Deep mutational scan, measured.
Amino acid sequence: SDGDWICPDKKCGNVNFARRTSCNRCG
């Protein structure tokens, strides 16, 4: 959805909800 972002860590790449301020997978 709008504002969702992909974790910049190449080893992670998790797609996070826009409301999250840190990655839901790797923190």
Rank of each mutant, 00 (worst) to 15 (best):
S1C: 12
S1T: 15
S1I: 15
S1G: 15
S1N: 15
S1K: 15
S1P: 00
S1V: 11
S1Y: 10
S1W: 01
S1F: 08
D2M: 13
D2S: 14
D2N: 07
D2I: 15
D2F: 12
D2A: 11
D2P: 05
D2L: 11
D2V: 06
D2R: 08
D2T: 15
D2Y: 15
D2C: 11
D2H: 09
D2G: 08
G3A: 10
G3L: 12
G3N: 13
G3M: 15
G3T: 15
G3C: 12
G3R: 15
G3K: 06
G3P: 01
G3D: 14
G3W: 14
G3F: 14
G3V: 15
G3S: 13
G3I: 11
G3E: 14
D4W: 03
D4T: 14
D4E: 03
D4A: 08
D4N: 14
D4M: 02
D4R: 07
D4I: 13
D4H: 09
D4S: 14
D4C: 01
D4F: 11
D4P: 05
D4Q: 00
D4L: 06
D4V: 11
D4K: 09
D4Y: 11
D4G: 09
W5E: 03
W5C: 01
W5Q: 02
W5N: 01
W5S: 04
W5M: 10
W5A: 00
W5F: 01
W5H: 00
W5T: 02
W5D: 00
W5G: 02
W5K: 00
W5R: 02
W5V: 00
W5I: 01
W5P: 03
W5L: 01
I6L: 15
I6R: 12
I6V: 11
I6S: 07
I6Y: 06
I6N: 07
I6T: 15
I6C: 03
I6E: 05
I6F: 07
I6D: 08
I6G: 00
I6Q: 15
I6H: 05
I6K: 02
C7F: 01
C7W: 00
C7M: 03
C7H: 00
C7Q: 02
C7G: 02
C7L: 01
C7P: 04
C7R: 05
C7K: 05
C7A: 03
C7S: 03
C7E: 01
C7Y: 02
C7N: 04
C7D: 03
C7V: 02
C7I: 02
C7T: 01
P8Q: 09
P8G: 02
P8W: 00
P8A: 01
P8V: 00
P8T: 05
P8H: 05
P8F: 01
P8D: 03
P8N: 02
P8C: 01
P8Y: 04
P8S: 03
P8K: 09
P8L: 05
P8M: 05
P8R: 03
P8E: 05
P8I: 00
D9M: 15
D9L: 04
D9T: 08
D9N: 13
D9I: 10
D9W: 04
D9F: 05
D9A: 08
D9P: 06
D9H: 04
D9C: 00
D9V: 10
D9Y: 06
D9E: 08
D9R: 08
D9S: 08
D9G: 04
K10N: 10
K10T: 10
K10W: 10
K10S: 13
K10Y: 06
K10M: 14
K10F: 08
K10L: 06
K10H: 09
K10R: 11
K10V: 05
K10I: 06
K10P: 14
K10D: 14
K10G: 10
K10C: 03
K11V: 09
K11W: 03
K11G: 08
K11L: 08
K11F: 09
K11Y: 08
K11C: 05
K11M: 13
K11H: 11
K11I: 07
K11T: 13
K11A: 13
K11D: 12
K11S: 07
K11Q: 10
K11R: 07
K11E: 00
K11P: 09
K11N: 12
C12P: 00
C12G: 04
C12S: 04
C12I: 13
C12E: 04
C12L: 03
C12N: 02
C12F: 05
C12T: 04
C12K: 06
C12Q: 05
C12H: 03
C12W: 00
C12M: 07
C12D: 05
C12Y: 01
C12V: 05
C12R: 02
C12A: 04
G13P: 03
G13Q: 13
G13M: 10
G13S: 05
G13W: 04
G13C: 09
G13L: 14
G13V: 04
G13E: 02
G13A: 14
G13Y: 01
G13H: 06
G13R: 06
G13T: 08
G13K: 02
N14H: 15
N14A: 08
N14W: 06
N14S: 07
N14P: 01
N14M: 07
N14Q: 07
N14V: 06
N14R: 06
N14T: 00
N14G: 07
N14E: 11
N14D: 07
N14F: 15
N14I: 02
N14Y: 15
N14K: 10
N14L: 05
N14C: 05
V15I: 07
V15L: 07
V15E: 10
V15C: 10
V15W: 08
V15S: 10
V15K: 04
V15F: 08
V15A: 09
V15T: 13
V15R: 10
V15P: 07
V15M: 09
V15G: 06
V15Q: 12
V15D: 08
N16K: 04
N16P: 03
N16S: 01
N16W: 01
N16F: 03
N16R: 02
N16D: 05
N16Y: 05
N16M: 00
N16A: 02
N16T: 04
N16E: 04
N16C: 04
N16I: 03
N16G: 03
N16Q: 04
N16L: 01
N16V: 03
N16H: 02
F17T: 15
F17H: 13
F17L: 11
F17A: 10
F17I: 10
F17K: 14
F17Q: 14
F17M: 15
F17V: 12
F17G: 14
F17W: 10
F17E: 14
F17N: 14
F17D: 14
F17S: 14
F17P: 12
F17R: 13
F17C: 13
F17Y: 15
A18T: 08
A18L: 06
A18C: 00
A18G: 11
A18E: 12
A18I: 06
A18S: 09
A18D: 06
A18Q: 09
A18K: 11
A18V: 08
A18P: 06
A18H: 12
A18R: 06
A18F: 06
A18M: 12
A18W: 07
R19M: 06
R19Y: 03
R19G: 12
R19A: 12
R19S: 09
R19N: 15
R19E: 15
R19T: 13
R19V: 10
R19W: 09
R19K: 13
R19Q: 11
R19H: 15
R19D: 12
R19I: 00
R19F: 05
R19C: 01
R19P: 11
R19L: 07
R20E: 14
R20D: 11
R20H: 09
R20C: 08
R20F: 05
R20T: 13
R20Y: 07
R20N: 07
R20G: 12
R20M: 12
R20A: 14
R20W: 12
R20K: 13
R20L: 12
R20P: 09
R20S: 10
R20Q: 15
R20I: 00
R20V: 13
T21V: 06
T21S: 10
T21H: 12
T21E: 12
T21P: 10
T21L: 11
T21W: 08
T21N: 14
T21C: 11
T21G: 08
T21K: 10
T21R: 12
T21A: 10
T21I: 06
T21M: 11
T21F: 14
T21Q: 13
T21D: 09
S22H: 01
S22V: 10
S22Y: 13
S22K: 11
S22A: 13
S22T: 15
S22P: 07
S22D: 14
S22E: 13
S22M: 11
S22G: 11
S22N: 14
S22F: 07
S22I: 07
S22Q: 08
S22R: 12
S22C: 14
S22W: 05
S22L: 07
C23M: 02
C23P: 01
C23H: 08
C23E: 07
C23R: 00
C23T: 06
C23Q: 06
C23A: 04
C23K: 02
C23S: 04
C23W: 00
C23V: 02
C23D: 06
C23I: 04
C23G: 03
C23N: 08
C23L: 00
N24I: 10
N24Q: 13
N24W: 09
N24C: 09
N24G: 14
N24K: 12
N24R: 12
N24V: 12
N24S: 14
N24H: 13
N24D: 12
N24A: 14
N24Y: 09
N24P: 09
N24L: 13
N24E: 15
N24M: 09
N24T: 15
N24F: 11
R25L: 09
R25G: 13
R25E: 12
R25C: 07
R25Y: 00
R25A: 11
R25K: 11
R25W: 09
R25H: 04
R25T: 10
R25P: 03
R25V: 11
R25N: 08
R25F: 08
R25Q: 13
R25M: 11
R25S: 10
R25D: 11
C26G: 03
C26P: 01
C26D: 09
C26M: 02
C26L: 01
C26Q: 03
C26Y: 00
C26N: 04
C26I: 00
C26T: 02
C26R: 01
C26K: 01
C26A: 02
C26S: 03
C26V: 01
C26W: 01
C26E: 05
C26F: 00
C26H: 02
G27S: 04
G27A: 06
G27D: 05
G27K: 07
G27L: 02
G27P: 03
G27V: 04
G27E: 08
G27Q: 09
G27C: 07
G27T: 04
G27W: 04
G27R: 05
